[in-house]
């Protein structure tokens, strides 16, 4: 962290705000430890209000809190390291520049996810123009009906080591076509609503539901190769 801006440190912190927050690493910190990723921190509103008023330390805290998750999103969408990093950087830059346009009708994180998803989608469409469409994929009855349903047995989470499970989940989602993957990521990994996902991707809510159904079924089918107890892969 070589580059510093003195004004960033000295003039920006509102007395009392950061003291009221849980101790957390900041942009200035070398501590890479992450906050629990699924915790909706109640102080988010305070941080956003302060950041909008020009408190850069509050914005830093928001960056520290969400950067890992935003990189996960851009990486999962683009499947390209360079694009993912660029999309993440641009997303945070835009969030900083356009904070005044955020009227807190949603969580800050949701707003940020939508910006980052747009940045990532733009790059995905540019790199692979024929692999992500706004049109509804053609469905046939056969797509929905699994050939065979086998039991996965008691809790696959306990049968596989954490790293092995992570590899399985990662490998399987990479095989999902981008149309389904993006909707699944926004709805089921990031927790956006159907409406928010539809607005972000630029498709109808009906299309989101349809892609989500097919995405979930395809993932289940692919996981079946790993989890079924009869050992047939």
């Amino acid at each position: 962290m070589a580059v510093y801006c003195a004004t960033l440190i000295v003039h920006s912190i509102q007395p009392g705000l950061l003291a009221s927050l849980a101790k957390a690493p900041t942009l200035s910190s070398s501590n890479p430890h992450r906050l629990p990723s699924n915790v909706v921190r109640e102080d988010e509103h305070l941080l956003v209000t302060a950041a909008k008023a020009g408190d850069t330390a509050a914005f830093e805290e928001l960056v520290n809190r969400y950067e890992r998750k935003i990189f996960r999103l851009t990486m999962n969408i683009t499947r390209n390291h360079e694009d993912a990093e660029d999309a993440m950087q641009d997303a945070f830059m835009k969030a900083y520049s356009h904070l005044d346009r955020f009227h807190e009708e949603s969580r800050f994180y949701t707003w940020l996810v939508r910006i980052a998803a747009n940045e990532a989608l733009m790059r995905l469409r540019k790199r692979r123009p024929n692999q992500f469409s706004l049109d509804e994929p053609i469905e046939s009855e056969d797509d929905f009906v699994p050939q065979q349903i086998e039991d996965w047995g008691p809790s696959p989470e306990q049968r596989f080591a954490q790293t092995e499970m992570r590899d399985i989940l990662r490998g399987v989602i990479e095989e999902l076509p981008p149309d389904f993957r993006v909707v699944f990521l926004l709805r089921d990994v990031e927790g956006l609503s159907t409406e928010e996902t539809a607005e972000t991707v630029g498709i109808s809510e009906a299309a989101v539901k349809s892609r989500l159904l097919r995405g979930r079924l395809k993932l289940r089918q692919k996981l079946d190769r790993h989890f079924r107890q009869d050992g047939k892969h």
Partner: peptide
């Protein structure tokens, strides 16, 4: 349930450092 908020992607420290540097430059 398995995928919800799952941490499937590594976040390299150099990527983090570049983001922070870029943001600091912009803020300054």
């Amino acid at each position: 349930n398995l995928y919800y908020d799952s941490d499937l992607v590594d976040y390299p420290v150099e990527v983090q450092a570049r983001l922070h540097q870029t943001l600091r430059r912009k803020i300054c």
